[in-house]
Design a protein around this nucleic acid. Structure first.
Lengths: 236, 236
DNA sequence: GAGATATAATTGGTCAACCAAATTAAATGC
DNA sequence: GCATTTAATTTGGTTGACCAATTATATCTC
């Protein structure tokens, strides 16, 4: 019951920074702010939103990190030319609009993960394998004690993406997976540490290590089957 | 000669924030900081590094964003409990935020487009086919006159994604494709309206209409081969 | 009136002081 | 001696003032 309260709280008591980010995003998506445009000065924004300048700055810093804004000292903050780096914000924003079905999310995850693991088999080096092993172990360590290992699970999949040497693919997964986990939890079907999942992680590690691409892809597909079936089942 | 000066400058005049990140990174890699450990308070750090607390905070914010640190108000900042090797890889990413390689972009596009066209074959209805035909025609109209039809080209691909009924996939393509086109143009290899591309669009339309999934996927792959080869060629 | 120069206003960056929550230490009661 | 309560301290969060670079405006020169 605890986690329900937590998730509610997170939605309800939104941090000022996130509110600003949300507002700026809306300005961007509605087209009121075009790439290259200059943002109102921090002081005006803080006044407008009725919040301290610190929060405005933090929001700008975060958006800058995503590559959405560029700030030039003593001049102003500008909207960057939209690139792949804008992915995160745009997607995560769009996802909350709810018009995207959970199935779409899961499907897309499958597409990305299968490619990711395939690239990983093809491109990893010895150093990478060490990283993957560490990641696997920190997952197993918790999972074998039946402790929730959501973060470690996520990290394992991202490490696979790392091995694939494709950052775009990785950043897309980075966005999609947490969203899936969130939605999955909402439906109270959270069973991240089944024996099946545990064994599949081990298998994935071995297959990738031996560059057994086909087997790895097959295992990954099976690994995602649970979520996929669930997603299909809730489609009206 | 210009870029040499720039890169030297970047190394020499490193921002205080980046210096801190570097230091924290070394603490992590030397094992002096283990996952779960508590970081020295911000004031101590700023004193130690001889830099304002603002910069320390910014560095922490950045590392927190990457999931390396967790900060609990009025308590302290802690090293997140994920594998140390994962930390290494993530931290190294922090310092070179710069661009995703063009190849990554193109690869990801291929992954998305192939899935997209496959879903399209499977899920479209008659109404959809009409839309796709309209889209194809407005492309052909321009292309046959050898007028640049970048927008129409893009729209055709997005329509295919529409037919696939997966909005997440579509929105990802929506973000990736313009970025590719931009990069492609930068290298002056703009030849969007070759006869080959023209014919491939026609083929794609027909295959999708007849639900010839395999043929459609094959054609799409061939269609993207040009960009893919170019991307591979510019990788040193 | 046009261009150059000096001045004022604007703006992001930085800093030091202060706040409230959390932690720790001390005091209290039994 | 132990548990509970209370006070003091530590800590991240926040604020407002100040700084230096930039930009806009006014002034001056010809």
């Amino acid at each position: 019951m605890e986690h329900v309260l937590n998730s509610l709280k997170e939605v309800g008591v939104q941090k000022p920074t996130d509110v600003i980010i949300q507002q700026v995003k809306e300005l961007l998506m509605s087209g009121q702010l075009q790439p290259g445009d200059k943002l109102p000065p921090e002081r005006k924004l803080s006044e407008k939103f009725g919040v301290g300048r610190t929060h405005v700055r933090e929001a700008i810093r975060k958006l800058e990190f995503y590559g959405i804004l560029k700030t030039r000292p003593q001049s102003g903050t500008y909207v960057a030319s939209i690139g792949i780096s804008a992915l995160e914000s745009l997607i995560s924003d769009v996802l909350r609009i709810d018009s995207y079905s959970f199935l779409s999310l899961v499907e897309t995850r499958e597409v990305l993960e299968l490619s990711s693991v395939s690239y990983a088999c093809e491109r990893h080096n010895n150093e990478d394998i060490a990283k993957l092993e560490t990641s696997l172990n920190s997952y197993l360590e918790k999972a074998e004690k039946h402790i929730s290992a959501v973060e470690e699970d996520l990290m394992f999949h991202l490490t696979i993406a790392d091995l694939g040497k494709n950052k775009v693919l990785k950043s897309m997964l980075l966005i999609i997976i947490p969203d899936i986990i969130f939605n999955y939890n909402v439906f109270n079907v959270c069973e991240t540490v089944t024996n099946k999942a545990l064994e599949e992680h081990r298998l994935l590690y071995n297959y990738i290590r031996n560059r057994a691409s086909e087997a790895a892809v097959r295992t990954m597909k099976e690994h995602l089957k649970g979520v996929m079936d669930f997603a299909k089942s809730i489609v009206q």
